[in-house]
Design a protein around this nucleic acid. Sequence first.
RNA 1: UGCCCGGUGGUGUAAUGGUAACACUAGUGAUUUUGGUUCACUCAUUCAUGGUUCGAGUCCAUGCCGGGUAGCCA
Length: 578
Amino acid sequence: MSSTDKTPSTPSSSSESLPERLNFIEQEIEKDLALPRMSGRVVTTRFPPEPNGYLHIGHAKSICLNFGLAQSYSGRCNLRFDDTNPSKEEQEYVDSIQEDVRWLGFEWDELHYASDYFDQLFDWAVQLIEAGKAFVCDLNAEQMREYRGTLTAPGKESPYRNRSVEENLKLFQAMRAGEFENGACTLRAKIDMAAANVNLRDPVLYRVLRAHHHRTGDKWCIYPMYDWAHGQSDSIEGITHSICTLEFEDHRPLYDWFCENLKIYHPRQIEFARLNLSYTVMSKRKLLQLVQDKHVSGWDDPRMPTISGLRRRGYTPESLRNFCERIGVAKFYSTIDVTVLENSVREHLNAIAPRVMAVLHPLKVVLTNYPEGQVEMLDAINNPEDPAAGTRQVPLTRELVIERDDFMEDAPKKFFRLKPGGEVRLRYGYVIKCEQVIKDPATGEVTELHCSYDPATRSGSEEGEQRKVKGVIHWVSATHGIEVPVRLYDRLFLNENPEDAPAGKTFLDNMNPDSLQVLTAKVEPSLETAAGGERVQFERNGYFCVDTVDSQPGKPVFNRIVPLRDSWSKIQSQGKTN
RNA sequence: UGCCCGGUGGUGUAAUGGUAACACUAGUGAUUUUGGUUCACUCAUUCAUGGUUCGAGUCCAUGCCGGGUAGCCA
C-alpha cells in the first residue's frame, strides 16, 4: 500500500490543517515535533487490532484518531495486526478488519503483522538473555501467581531467576525447539519483583503454546506476549506516537523499559479513554456471545454496534467519522448517549437521502368522488435539501393507503392529521376530507375511510397551492404501490448500561425483546428496483436502507436505519395534546 | 488498601494564570405541503477545603469521589 492510494472519500483530506482546537493528544504531538527523536521523521501512527473479532464502533474511534492524526500532520498510519495469540485469532477476522477500515474511508500506508517480527523478537529476547536481563522460569501459572505478590505486597523472586546466561540461552533454544510441554516454562524479563507496578514484576515474554498460527503456521511453538511484541513492533515500523486505550497506561513503564534496554527507537505511547455508548455493549467477548448464542443473526446483524452491523443497517462512513469527531478524545471515562450516534446519521442522511412515500401500517382510504380507474401522475420532490436531486412522479388513484397513526377518531386539539369530518392534504396531491369511517362490526376496528377530495386543491397548481390546511400526510396508491418487507430495529438493550444487571442476572437479561419488528409496508412503485445498500427517507417516518443480504432483484427488503425526530410523539408522551 | 490515571452544565469536549466556549440533549418561539429540515432565544460561579497571586477551572496542599491494575489475553 502506498500513501498515494488514499480513497477519495478520506475525511478532511481537502484540508490537512489542524482544527483550531487541539485534543490533548494533538497537543502532546505538537510538543514532540521539535524533539530529536522526531528528526527526519513524520508523525507516524498505527491501528493495531487483534484479529480475534469484528471491529465495532469503539474501534472506529481509534481508527479515526490514528488515521486522522496522520492526515492532520501529513504523516503516515499503518494497519498492524497484533497476532501474538494464535489460539484466538483467525483469517476471517483479518479480512473483515481490512474491509471495515477501508469502508470507513481510510487507507493504510503499510500493512503489517506482529507475526512478521517473530524472528526479530526472538533475537531480541536472546540479546536480553545475554545481557542478563531475562531468564527461563519453570514456575507454573499457579506458582507464578503466588510469587507475584499482591497489589499491596511485593512479590518474591523466582527460584530460577539466577540461572546462568548459558543455561538460559540453552533452555530458551529448547523452548523454541519444542522440547517443553505447553505451559511448562516461560521466558521472563528480570526487572523487579518488588515494583509497585505489578507489570514490572518480571513479566512473561514468551510462553510455550502449540497452536496453528494463521500466518506462521506451525513454525513456532512459543509466542511472544503483548508487552514484548507491541512496543518493538512500533519501534520497527518507526511509529512516533503509539496511541492506545487507558488500560495500557500501567504498561507504559514496561513499554519504555524494553525500548531502552534493547536500545532501539523509542516511540511514545499515549493513552486515551475508550468509547462507551449507552444501551450498548462494546466488549468483544460480549459481542461474540451475542453471536454465538444466536441472540442476533451474526456479527453484521443490523442491531450490532459492529462496523459491519452499522454498515448493513445503513449507516454511512461519513456519519461515523463525524460522530468520532464530535465525541472528542480525553482521558476520562465517559459514556456517549446513543442519540449522538443516531443524530450523526440523521444529519448526513437528511442531506443525501432521496425522499419517498411508504406506508408502514396501512389503512385503506377510498376517494369516493375520484373517478374509478383514473391515474394521475403527481410531481414529487426527491430531496428538498438538494434541488439537484430533481423530481419524480407518483401515481394517485381512487384507492389509497395511509398510515394508521394519521387517523384518529377522537382526536385531541393538537392532532393535525385526519379525523372524522376533518381535512388534510395528501402530500403532493389534493386536500381530502374524511366523510365516513368504516369499522369492523365485530371488533370495532377502523378498517376503511371514505373521503372526498377537492379537485381545486391540487399541488403544483396556483390556486391549489393557496389552500392551506394544517396537516399533510403521506400516502401510497393501493393499486399501484408495492408490498415490501420492512424491518424496524430498536436498541438491543433496555438499560442505559446493559451491564447493570441485578445479582444473578447478566447483560443478556437486559436485552430488548422488541429490538426487531418485521412488517409488510406499501411503498411507491419506484422502489421496486431499489438496489442493495441504497438509502432513502420514508417521508415523515425515517431513513431506510435496502438490505444487502436478504434483498433479491425486484424484491427489496428494507432496514430502518433510524427514525425521523418525532415531536408529535413527544407532545403525546408529555400529554400536551390539547 | 499499594501503584497509575481522572473529576468543568443533563451529555460530551474547550478554555495552556486574564470575560467559562462549542456541540448534542432539553425547553420556548418562528418558518415549513415531511409534527422532518432550518432559524432565534433559554439552561454552569468548574468535586470540597485551604494556599500562592492584582487575578485560579488552570499552579500547590489536603481530603472526597470515580476508573484501571495482581493472564503463560490483548
